[in-house]
């Protein structure tokens, strides 16, 4: 039996230890902070502090609505989402129909690929 308080888990191709990860994460945070401090000294005040949203000046109280997030992704996948919206009808007859369809598919799979070992 393995030691339950040992944080590391060995996988088929390696080892995973969360404590080491946390250590590395904190270390990289520290490095990032150092770099940030270096830049902070020579930062210029002015235009770069203002907020822009899609090239337009925003007042800082703008909130992007949920439906607008990931617009590009949704636009790129338009065809797929059209198909998916068509499938998700919300009619209960279809729910049962899909169930029976999967049942028939599984029976056919087992008929042709063999149910018996």
């Amino acid at each position: 039996m393995m030691n339950p308080f040992n944080p590391s888990i060995s996988t088929p191709s390696g080892i995973w230890n969360p404590l080491v990860w946390i250590l590395v994460f904190l270390l990289s945070l520290l490095i990032a902070y150092v770099i940030y401090l270096k830049g902070e000294k020579q930062r210029k005040k002015g235009m770069q502090e203002e907020i822009f949203l899609s090239g337009n000046k925003a007042d800082g109280n703008t909130h992007i609505k949920a439906s607008n997030i990931g617009w590009g992704y949704l636009e790129a996948m338009k065809g797929y989402y059209k198909l998916m919206r068509d499938i998700h009808t919300g009619i209960i007859n279809d729910y049962v129909g899909w169930f029976l369809g999967v049942l028939a598919t599984m029976l056919l799979i087992f008929l042709f690929w063999g149910g018996v070992r």
Binding site: D94, G97, L100, G101, L103, A104, L107, L108, L111
Partner: peptide
């Protein structure tokens, strides 16, 4: 279309039974 598909599914299951 939907009805034809459902008929095929139904006949498949029934034929197994």
């Amino acid at each position: 279309m939907r009805n034809i598909l459902m008929l095929i599914v139904f006949l498949t299951i029934i034929s197994f039974f």
